[in-house]
Simulated assay, not measured.
Amino acid sequence: MRKHSPCWALRAVAVVAATATIAAGLASCGASADADHSKDGSWKTVYGNQKLGGRYQSLAVGDAKHAWAFGNTDPDANKHTRIDRWDGKRWKPDTFPSEWTITPEFADASSADNVWAGAQTADKVFTLLHYDGHQWSEHQIHFDTVRDIEAVGSNEVLLLGDGTLRRFDGTTTAQETAPTHSRFGVVMGADDTLYAVGARKNQPYAEKWDGRKWTSMDAPASRPKNCSDGGFSDMYVRSVDDIWAVGNSMCGNSFKSFMGHWNGKKWTMTVDTKHNQRFDQVVDDGHGGIWVVDATGKYVHRDAAGTLTRYDAGTKDAYGNLPRIANLPGTRSMIGTATTNPKSQSSKTPPYGLVRQFQP
């Protein structure tokens, strides 16, 4: 799982070479106009308040009964690491060494026994935290700039950097063949195939590792007119013929986002020129649809019928900064983390981390 990027792309998933159909507005891909409210469920805050304070920056899910939210106890400085845990019934502080100060920007889990979180903590030093199902441990490795991490197997993690891909098992670091151009994100597909995503020539770009080399997968040009950059930020693969990808372009002082669907034969791309939004993450909704994180502070749901609904990642009185989202596997329940930012400039309420849950 990625951290938040300033523009696009810190994650990847399977992409298939295809032709593209570009359409303006979110009327393509079976999408309808935005709905104000959903009859299927709602978000509510389940953990976090002013007393607990702090902030969240990353989220990892092992299974429906194991999830972790990572951040720091201080909203403005890296004083003490914060790790809170979902045990299937409630959220509570996890147990780990009290002297840790890292604020994990990346987090991912391949199971409840292989959870990784990390951040760049010094020049060419990347600090990783690992949970093996029993306890947390800390590891430091020499790495210039990490762009993404991906938990794989029973005890390993992949780290992607600029032209570098490494595998770490808690003891040994092994060099892997890095993607040719996609340097923003990497993921292990369901078939144990690696995929990478990012941008090339300011357009979405993706590659697939075939066991011998990285090969380009033709991604559709999706950058809106008058925009300077564009690229994939995240993708979700439900099956080989049901793949969703999201990304965005920088257009002056705003962002325009796009959403793409691969049906096994071709891409259908939808460019939204209406909203100033930055699609940063896409995940399964557990019921044939998807959830998309708009990094400006929204959760966007696209149900299986194509209806789009936007929700605030924060509360009625505060914006939700740095939102993250994940599905609890095997359910339709979603969890999201964010750090509040008061909507009123006169508010004396300090920022704090909160966990929200969507219950159908």
Rank of each mutant, 00 (worst) to 15 (best):
R11V: 05
G336Y: 09
L308P: 08
D192K: 15
L129A: 03
W116Y: 05
R2G: 13
D94L: 11
A20D: 11
P93N: 02
H37T: 12
P179A: 03
W209N: 05
P350D: 01
A305S: 14
D108C: 05
H37Y: 14
V282I: 14
Y131W: 10
N276P: 08
A151T: 05
G260I: 10
G297F: 05
H66N: 13
R324D: 10
I335S: 01
G153V: 08
V293N: 04
T270M: 14
G185M: 09
A24Q: 07
A12E: 04
N114E: 08
P93V: 00
M269W: 00
T331R: 10
A23I: 14
T145F: 14
L354I: 15
F358Y: 15
D234R: 00
T349H: 01
L308K: 07
D241C: 02
S346G: 01
K208F: 03
K213F: 02
F126A: 06
H287K: 12
R332K: 15
V46K: 11
S233G: 07
N248C: 05
V157E: 06
Y299G: 02
T127V: 02
T315S: 08
H4E: 09
N226Y: 04
A318P: 09
A326H: 11
Q135W: 00
F358T: 01
G320W: 04
T127M: 05
T73Y: 06
G48W: 02
D229P: 00
T193P: 05
L159F: 09
A326M: 02
A245K: 03
D76K: 14
S154Q: 15
R147D: 12
A31L: 09
A20L: 09
N72K: 00
L59W: 01
N321C: 11
R166H: 13
R167E: 13
V125L: 07
H134E: 11
L129T: 05
A338R: 12
V237N: 11
Q57F: 12
N248H: 02
W68C: 06
G211Y: 06
T180L: 13
H275T: 14
R278K: 14
T101P: 05
F258D: 02
T331Y: 04
A221E: 14
V355D: 11
W116S: 03
M334F: 10
L165H: 08
I83S: 06
W214F: 08
T315N: 08
